[in-house]
Write a protein that binds this DNA or RNA. Structure first.
Length: 653
DNA sequence: GCGGATCAC
DNA sequence: GATGGTGATCCGC
């Protein structure tokens, strides 16, 4: 099965026994739920191919000619955007996480190793890659491919630190460089090079390295031979070697400068980087892969050379063309960029306008050279978790609560609110469902997000009846974001720090949350002794039913004294909790309460029976279920949302 | 605007 | 023991 096969498009994967590797992968995965889902996706992709082929047979010669005519116009337009004036560099750290672990534990250097666990590997070293072990592969398959494989637990703080050190070096050359991830970045060196050229050689930097500190990695960088520079000045690689000290310096060409940067990175972090140099990001990215590891490559900056370079390139090497696109293109006998260009009329007739433009630009070697990310603004923010199978509503709501909590914290930190909430659910069969709701106003309130998300979850559970909804992952995403200015933020941060020190660790671990809520309760109970009745109300989950006269009078009293009271209902037992809207610790308290609730005997919770949302529980449960059914209108109630629920309800009838 | 898919890292 | 998390974009309704 093609989907399951080894992805050998990345560096360090050439010349290995692909057949054997694929056989082992297949044996390890066959029959699993994951595998079955991959088969389902495969079938889907095949259907897509079938549709494509059907479309293909209907294409006439006249259509192709007309397409070429239109393509000529597109091509001319694209050609006007070709810009060879900027020096764009893509810097890519080699096997970043693995290299860091080896640096810090040299005994790993000659062993196949991977960072990650039996669940998932983040990356592997080059020895392991020879066995077919690679990033994004589950560890247990890695172990089958290479029984001697050593796992190292990820140490993200260390990776962030190394990344910071690398970035500091990049910033010396382009303060507006853009990082793609911890181990990858783009730079625009045009301005830097101008400056360097003017002052060269008087200002060139000289590095003094003790001979014994010169590693093989460093020597490789120093001994790379750059082609002669355009203006006849020899690339400057002065190595005055007396007995114990070696002095090295680099010239002023882009390639010299890149070697200098890689040299500095290596000297600072003991890690190696590869680099690609081109007139745009697409080309730079392809080039950084060319001489990996610890190497660099520059494509020549002329239109003809660029097109020549692209022609032999397999389509899969282009960022943006993945497994599926590669396959679709293969179906019309396109596997490299020469064919991509030669068959552009078919592309035009088979693919969308956006895709056609993209493919054409790729074939012509044209791409964006905009590096600065100063104006970058995120479009969405999300949080998702995989867990052991759950199917009870109560368990789902607990997960949901934690996700909303986490997400709200992130949003508050970034001072953003969102207007579109998306719930992502992945079943144990790896099927993904996404449901989104447009809100009337922007929010980053945990309560609001939780109320809406939990309603979506209830609805989805109903929708798949009489099947049980069995989940392995849940996620919450907010989009249509709005940024708020930092006035509020700083005040809020200060308040948070002042009053709720223990809250700052809230999202970090469940045990912290429990500790936090415990201390909260202690503090509050202490306060109770001298404070008014109103405060007492905020400290307990109400023991009363919603409609009881006792509660109503309490609420009335509360609203007399204070107009910022809010209410949150426990998803498990349906009791509710009244709190002041400026109070920040209610969530920890709620979490603690939910935990307690879940430890109660089964009969106390909403059951996992298929009827649990329609009020059929026994005894005590009856009243609660009924209550819940009436109560659960989302608090952000608005037209859009209202319509959403109505529509959902209709589909269930 | 929504939901499914694809893609990158 | 048992296939991740975050963000972006596109396509077809």
């Amino acid at each position: 099965m093609a989907r399951m096969g080894l992805n050998d498009s990345k560096a360090g994967m050439t010349g290995l026994d692909k057949q054997k590797i694929n056989r082992i992968i297949l044996e390890a995965t066959k029959g699993s739920r994951f595998y079955n889902n991959e088969m389902r996706k495969e079938k889907q992709a095949t259907e897509r191919v079938t549709r494509l082929k059907a479309k293909l047979t209907k294409i006439t010669q006249a259509q192709r000619l007309a397409a070429l005519d239109e393509l000529k116009r597109m091509e001319n337009q694209l050609e006007t955007t070709r810009d060879l004036s900027r020096f764009i560099v893509h810097v890519d750290m080699d096997a970043f996480y693995a290299a860091i672990e080896i640096r810090d534990n040299p005994s790993l250097a000659d062993k196949p190793m991977a960072v990650g666990g039996t669940g998932m590997m983040l990356t592997s070293n080059y020895i392991a890659r020879r066995y077919g072990v690679r990033a994004a592969m589950p560890g247990f398959i890695g172990k089958r491919l290479c029984p001697d494989l050593v796992f190292v637990k990820p140490n993200s703080a260390k990776y962030a630190q190394a990344s910071k050190e690398v970035r500091a070096i990049l910033a010396e050359y382009d303060p507006n460089f853009a990082s793609v991830s911890l181990d990858e970045a783009y730079m625009d060196l045009t301005e830097y090079l101008e400056g360097r050229k003017c002052t060269f050689p008087s200002s060139h930097v000289e590095f003094t390295v003790p001979q014994q500190d010169l590693t093989e990695d460093m020597l490789k960088i120093l001994n790379e031979v750059a082609p002669p520079t355009v203006d006849g000045v020899d690339s400057y690689n002065n190595c005055s070697s007396n007995s114990s000290i070696r002095k090295v310096s680099f010239g002023h060409t882009i390639e010299d400068v890149m070697r200098e940067i890689r040299f500095k990175i290596n000297r600072k972090t003991k890690l190696t980087a590869s680099a690609g140099i081109g007139p745009n990001k697409m080309l730079a990215k392809i080039c950084s892969d060319w001489k990996k590891p610890n190497g660099q490559f520059k494509v020549e900056f002329t239109r003809d050379k660029i097109i020549e370079f692209m022609r032999q390139l397999p389509t899969r090497k282009i960022s943006g063309i993945g497994k599926v696109s590669e396959r679709l293109l293969n179906e019309i006998e396109i596997s490299n960029c020469k064919e991509l260009y030669d068959k552009r009329d078919l592309i035009y007739l088979l693919f969308s306008n956006v895709s056609t433009k993209f493919f054409l630009a790729v074939a012509m070697g044209i791409g964006s050279n905009e590096v600065s990310s100063k104006n970058y603004q995120r479009k969405s923010i999300s949080c998702e978790r995989t867990f052991g199978e759950i199917s009870r509503l109560a368990d789902m709501l607990v997960k949901c609560q934690k996700l909303c909590d986490n997400l709200a914290n992130h949003m508050k930190k970034e001072n953003i609110t969102g207007r579109c909430l998306t719930v992502k659910l992945k079943t144990v069969a790896f099927e993904v469902k996404q449901r989104s709701v447009s809100l009337k106003h922007h929010t980053n309130s945990t309560t609001e997000m939780f109320n809406i998300a939990s309603e979506v979850i209830r609805s989805e559970r109903l929708a798949c009846q009489p099947e049980r909804l069995r989940l392995r992952l849940m996620g919450i995403k907010m989009s249509t974001l709005k940024r708020h200015e930092s006035d509020e933020k700083s005040i809020q941060d200060t308040l948070t720090r002042y009053f709720n020190k223990y809250d700052e660790n809230c999202s970090q671990s469940q045990s912290t949350i429990n500790e936090a809520s415990k201390s909260f309760i202690n503090i509050e109970q202490h306060k109770l002794d001298e404070k008014s009745k109103l405060d007492k109300v905020t400290c307990y989950f109400s023991k009363y039913d919603e409609n009881s006269s006792q509660l109503q009078s309490t609420m009335k009293e509360a609203s007399k004294n204070c107009d910022n009271m809010e209410k949150v209902t426990c998803p498990v037992c349906d009791q509710f909790y009244v709190y002041k809207s400026d109070e920040t610790s209610w969530l920890a308290l709620l979490n603690s309460h939910i935990d307690t609730c879940l430890q109660q005997p089964e009969t106390m919770k909403p059951s996992q029976s298929h009827n649990d949302s329609v009020g059929s529980s026994k005894g005590k449960g009856v009243k609660r279920r009924k209550l819940q059914h009436n109560r659960m209108q989302p608090t952000t109630g608005n037209k859009t949302l209202h319509n959403f629920w109505q529509a959902k309800d209709n589909t269930h009838q």
